Computed example of a mutant assay.
Amino acid sequence: MIFCGDPHPAAHMPLPGYPRGGVGACTGDKKCSCTVNPLVTPPASRAEYNYTISWRWTYTRSNIFTPSPKMKLKLLTWDVKDTLLRLRLPVGQQYQAEAKSRGLQVDSAALDSSFRQVYSNHWRLFPNYGLSQGMTSHRWWLDVVSQTFRLSGIQDEKILQSLSERLYQDFCTDRYWEVLPGAREALKGCEELGLRMAVISNFDRRLEDILRHVDLDGHFDFVLTSESAGVAKPDLGIFHKALKLGAVSPQCAAHIGDDFVKDYKAAREAGMFSLLLQNRLRKDIPSDHVIQSLDQLIPRLREVME
């Protein structure tokens, strides 16, 4: 006897505590797909049923798994920061270097702490670069950088203006950004699988320039930033816009990113398949939905594609 998660009610003798037609002892009904996707042992709990049956089961907003065949995947969308690119050095060190070039002494740890505080407050008060409040992303970033230096002890407004503008411009080049290990190989592998690719990122309008400077821009059909979309992840609107631009249904699209809420969960709520890039497994999602490095991406995609 085997146990499976096929929801066809005629195929199962339900196990206690599970919904009728859910996980159960298979009776061998030909309508059951357990020969394709069996579970050798029954799940230990309803929570395990909800989270670890198999990658073939799609988690929905009502906490129910529904079976899905292998995907006809056409479009893969990517997050960028800490998925494809990362900062070469912490923000505090990069800001300190620019200040030092002007003869100013500022502690990098103080700059790091100030930046985190200012960025968080500014995004809360003026979300998505303040676009709905009449701001531009350029103005938004100049304010963030200036206030970061103010909190770290620099008060001269002329110096602050010059520092902020210089850093804003430099951060759209490869001076401060580097490609994550395995990213180029993963992008090439996706192309060899026949996938079209695009970007969905909570970045500002400089992102296309950054991707061009690091020689990644040629991999993408389009780059959709939260600034150009008018909404930021995890708002489902940005995913819907990407699907429209890609001219694909959610069932034919997948997304990969490093943030559970903004990337993994939001993409699934938009109807897409998604993978979470993190260096450790999580208890709240199936292990097959997590890749711990980009060299695991292509084998995982092969598993889910027709």
Results as ranks from 00 to 15, higher is better:
residue 200 I to W: 04
residue 235 D to V: 02
residue 196 R to H: 14
residue 221 D to G: 14
residue 220 F to M: 08
residue 206 R to N: 12
residue 200 I to S: 04
residue 235 D to N: 13
residue 207 L to H: 14
residue 213 H to T: 10
residue 212 R to N: 08
residue 203 F to D: 13
residue 202 N to D: 15
residue 204 D to A: 10
residue 220 F to Y: 12
residue 235 D to W: 01
residue 224 L to I: 13
residue 234 P to F: 03
residue 222 F to L: 08
residue 203 F to R: 10
residue 212 R to E: 11
residue 223 V to N: 08
residue 196 R to M: 06
residue 221 D to A: 11
residue 208 E to V: 15
residue 215 D to S: 11
residue 218 G to V: 01
residue 218 G to D: 05
residue 208 E to K: 15
residue 231 V to F: 04
residue 225 T to V: 07
residue 225 T to P: 04
residue 229 A to K: 10
residue 228 S to N: 07
residue 209 D to W: 09
residue 201 S to Q: 14
residue 219 H to E: 08
residue 199 V to M: 02
residue 217 D to K: 03
residue 204 D to M: 12
residue 199 V to E: 05
residue 209 D to S: 13
residue 213 H to K: 10
residue 219 H to I: 09
residue 207 L to N: 12
residue 237 G to E: 00
residue 203 F to N: 11
residue 225 T to S: 10
residue 220 F to E: 09
residue 219 H to F: 15
residue 236 L to M: 02
residue 237 G to D: 00
residue 207 L to D: 13
residue 234 P to T: 04
residue 204 D to V: 12
residue 213 H to D: 09
residue 236 L to Y: 03
residue 206 R to E: 07
residue 208 E to C: 14
residue 209 D to Q: 15
residue 201 S to A: 15
residue 225 T to N: 06
residue 229 A to G: 07
residue 230 G to L: 07
residue 207 L to S: 12
residue 205 R to E: 13
residue 237 G to W: 00
residue 221 D to W: 09
residue 220 F to A: 07
residue 235 D to C: 03
residue 198 A to Q: 08
residue 222 F to Q: 07
residue 205 R to T: 11
residue 209 D to P: 02
residue 230 G to K: 09
residue 232 A to F: 04
residue 208 E to Y: 13
